[in-house]
């Protein structure tokens, strides 16, 4: 499958929901999509396009908005593809991929913990790395790196 072929298939199915399919070095392409169609898009990629492996879920804080990206692998085509959606910074919410790929569970907990993305429909959206009750999402650009005191107080008071 080629990038433009993928773009044609996705646009014919989702229309306005697909914002664009970019060339991406080393990948089949990067599919930018609207967060509203996330759940349907995941099902399409797994069931129709054969991307059975979810390898990575991560998020980037672009200050004015946040980006969630998913990388998928297809055993038949032997390619990776990246899905990416922009979310507003004040309400970063997207549908969870756990019903489609169970492996998304740990990845999404990590994205919630570090970048503060809310995944709707996730069975157990808790922090995975930082202690429960920690006040910040450390990988936000607004988080200053020399700020261990709050955590220190929190741990000592337990």
């Amino acid at each position: 499958m080629k990038t433009n072929e993928l773009a044609a298939r996705l646009t014919s199915k989702f229309g306005e929901g697909i914002l664009g399919v970019d060339e991406f070095p080393g990948l089949l392409g990067r599919v930018r999509f609207d967060a509203a169609i996330a759940s349907k898009l995941f099902h399409t990629f797994r069931d129709d396009l054969g991307f059975a492996h979810l390898t990575m879920v991560g998020a980037i804080d672009w200050i004015d908005h946040r980006e969630v990206f998913y990388t998928l692998w297809s055993d038949a085509d032997r390619v990776y593809v990246m899905l990416s959606a922009n979310l507003p910074s004040d309400a970063p919410t997207i549908a969870s991929a756990v019903p489609v790929w169970p492996s998304a569970n740990a990845h999404e907990r990590e994205a919630w913990d570090l970048v503060g993305i809310r995944f709707e429909g996730h069975p157990d959206l808790r922090r995975i790395f930082m202690p429960e009750g920690y006040a910040y999402h450390p990988l936000l650009r607004s988080f200053k790196i020399h700020e261990p005191e709050d955590l220190e107080v929190k741990v000592r008071s337990e």
Partner: peptide, 26 residues
């Protein structure tokens, strides 16, 4: 896995790693 976003600075803008062990344990 590693995903590096380089927005044209001295440092990478974002580095994301995928650890196999996290998923294998999970």
């Amino acid at each position: 896995g590693a995903y590096i976003v380089n927005d044209g600075g001295e440092h990478p803008y974002r580095v994301k790693f995928r650890s196999p062990v996290l998923i294998n344990i999970w």
